[in-house]
Amino acid sequence: MLGADDAVTAALAARGWPARPLADQPLGVDLLNTRWVAGGVAYDLLDHDDLTEAWLADRELPTGRPVPRRQLREARDAVAAVIADPADHAALNALLDRGRVRLAVDEHGQVEHEDVADPAWRAAWACLRDYLRLREATPDRLRKCANPDCVLHFQDVSRTSRRQWCSMTACGNRFKARRHHDRVRGQA
Results as ranks from 00 to 15, higher is better:
A80L: 01
D77A: 12
L96Y: 05
N93F: 01
G109M: 06
A104N: 13
D88G: 00
L61V: 11
V82R: 09
R100N: 08
D97A: 14
T63V: 09
Q71M: 08
T63P: 08
Q71R: 12
E60N: 10
P86N: 12
P68W: 11
E60C: 14
A78W: 01
A94K: 12
G64M: 04
I83E: 01
A87P: 03
P62R: 13
L61G: 04
R100I: 06
A91T: 07
A90P: 08
L103T: 10
V101F: 00
A75Q: 01
R70Y: 01
P86W: 03
V105E: 14
V111Q: 11
V67E: 05
A84K: 01
I83G: 04
A75Y: 01
H108Q: 13
P86L: 03
Q71S: 03
P86E: 13
R102M: 12
R70P: 05
R65H: 10
L92T: 08
D88E: 14
L96C: 09
A104W: 10
A78T: 01
Q110I: 15
T63F: 07
A87S: 15
P66N: 08
P86Y: 08
Q110T: 15
Q71Y: 03
R70I: 00
D97S: 11
L92M: 14
Q71G: 04
R100L: 09
P62L: 09
A84M: 08
